[in-house]
Design a protein around this nucleic acid. Structure first.
Lengths: 342, 342
DNA sequence: CTGTTAGCGCTTTCAG
DNA sequence: CTGAAAGCGCTAACAG
């Protein structure tokens, strides 16, 4: 109500006719507060428009209710806003707030960001990357509860959540098989990254599971962009016995594949079925015909990471043994998004 | 060095053989500290691995060195990661750190976010939107230095930075004119938003400036997505006297226009030149031929917003009169990005 | 130029 | 169940 000076917990206590301790207990949802006392405290808070000063709470309690979110470039990446959304929503529900720093791949900035976070006594830390890969986060991250998102450390010494790439490749290929295709091309990425290796693995497992022999000729490797997709598709089309369907490493390469197919005067999906990966709305939904593709579980990874942190936080002290368990390495499924290209 | 308990400013003072006041002065870059004292303090800090506790600093000084960043959806929007990047880099240089909250268009969450920020004594607040529009931020935002990004309030009572849409439309159209086109179509967006109105205004000014009469027939309004672009382009192509160039409200509609042009068996840019708006990399760079388009100054707006806040912050006290000046309403230019469609 | 001292506003014992 | 009191770690006067 009043606008002049800041309302403190003292003022509230006076107004409610109780001690500051009681106000604090109400604020923090402690038990052992009489209904009467609680009621008058709440009324006093309401009337005075009291808002606790976060810095004071943090200083005394050593909890900031902040979750730090450090990324190489995620906030500037098109599809990964979903991670932020999942993380942020979940944090908010848990009474936490997200603190974002983008490090632009700068290791110096990265170290500095982690330290700044720790200086601010964040309750936990999320270290996220723009694409699924092995990472080497600053050592300091181990001082507090942390989780890796869309990345992992080789020795699995930090909790991690990443997409299940192999399963995604398996599902994509299986979907094609179920639509009657037996000769299925795969335009893979050319660099050795987890997605590259694992999606191929999924592709092979799916063939095997359905009794289709693997034909090395049907797998080409190109940079996963429209040009590479175009080029890879042309190569497949030029085969003596070309495929009737093609699985593209991602939507961008599928975009190029579309061009090649069209240029040959073939129709999608009647002559060639196409399936992508990533579900980049901007591309997949806008291509004609709409691209059927696998979605990366960005939103879900964001949720999982925060929930994990939250559970770690209230496990502190309660279950000492938990700290000893080896950190979870979670894989999240990539759902199939059906449009019109298969 | 030591790992046990937290190193405090007291420890540093003792180690350096000075009082805590001196340490604090060194930390905060005050003048009036002897070179000797400063040197030993710095050494002590180094040796002890001392890091100030942010909450204590904030509590005492009432400055958090945090800039709050509140957005409706910006962090999940593809092109707007650039805003974050600009803001974040600039904040970091100014010794500030960014605190992001995404409100998902929820006014309740929005109010709550602003309050949370104020509770944490952020030094300033950026309120950003996903597309250029009039906005109604929570009242509480006026309690502290704030700036609107990619939006504005009708009465100009809050500082604001937005793209110069009219100039963008002018430049795009002029570029077409300079390439010899006299009959230029415009596929505008259909909703009444600033970009819709202002880009059209720019288009008309450019025609006028070059003595080309405005022909209402050449302006069509469609939803700014591929389908609308396709449809709008078809309408223009069906004109008795069709245009030789077309300005599309954005890259997504240009994507549809491409389809229509191709379907008619026409070539870009030989038969029809196309220019877009937004420079959405994912589309513009991947279309064939590459789409010439206008870029929105996201990165620059991010920088401007933080710089403005920073200047406001150290103007506090120094120049009381400044507070009285009416808040700046800044327009930032949209640069032309030349590819191969004109 | 520098040491000392008083809090910033809150949470958490500690007695009752 | 609750009040009083003791700081959390730091900065900003205030005397020197």
């Amino acid at each position: 109500m009043s606008k002049s000076t800041k309302v403190t917990i003292q003022d509230v206590a006076r107004l409610a006719g109780v001690g500051v301790g009681t106000v604090s207990r109400v604020l923090n949802g402690h038990p052992n507060v009489s209904a009467d006392a609680e009621a008058s405290v709440r009324r006093a808070i309401e009337e005075s428009g009291y808002r606790p000063v976060a810095a004071a709470q943090t200083l005394r309690s050593r909890r900031s209710n902040i979750i730090g979110f450090i990324t190489d470039e995620i906030a500037t990446s098109p599809h990964a806003g979903q991670i932020m959304r999942g993380a942020q929503e979940t944090a908010w529900k848990g009474g936490k707030i997200l603190f974002l720093v983008n490090t632009q791949w700068d290791p110096e900035l990265e170290r500095s960001a982690v330290e700044t976070m720790i200086d601010r006594q964040v309750d936990g830390l999320i270290y996220a990357t723009m694409f699924h890969r092995a990472a080497t986060p600053p050592q300091a991250i181990r001082q507090i509860p942390s989780v890796l998102l869309d990345c992992f450390v080789e020795d699995a010494s930090l909790a991690s959540v990443v997409p299940n790439e192999a399963d995604g490749g398996y599902q994509a290929t299986t979907y094609l098989i179920e639509h009657g295709h037996r000769r299925i091309g795969y335009i893979n990425h050319v660099e050795d990254i987890p997605a590259q290796r694992l999606r191929l693995q999924g592709y092979r497992s799916a063939l095997e599971a359905h009794g289709i022999p693997f034909d090395a000729e049907l797998v080409v490797e190109r940079y996963s962009e429209p040009k590479g997709g175009y080029d890879g598709m042309m190569t497949l089309l030029n085969l003596p016995n070309p495929p009737s369907a093609v699985f593209c490493f991602n939507d961008r390469s599928a975009m190029g594949a579309y061009d090649a197919i069209r240029q040959r005067g073939l129709r999608i999906p009647q002559d060639i079925a196409v399936i992508g990966f990533d579900n980049q709305e901007l591309i997949a939904a806008n291509l004609y015909p709409g691209l059927t593709t696998m979605q990366l579980p960005h939103y879900e990874m964001g949720i999982w990471a925060v929930e994990y942190l939250l559970s770690e936080l209230d496990a502190v002290g309660k279950d000492e043994a938990a700290a000893e368990r080896s950190p979870p390495q979670v894989l999240l499924k990539c759902p199939l998004v059906v449009r019109d290209s298969v």
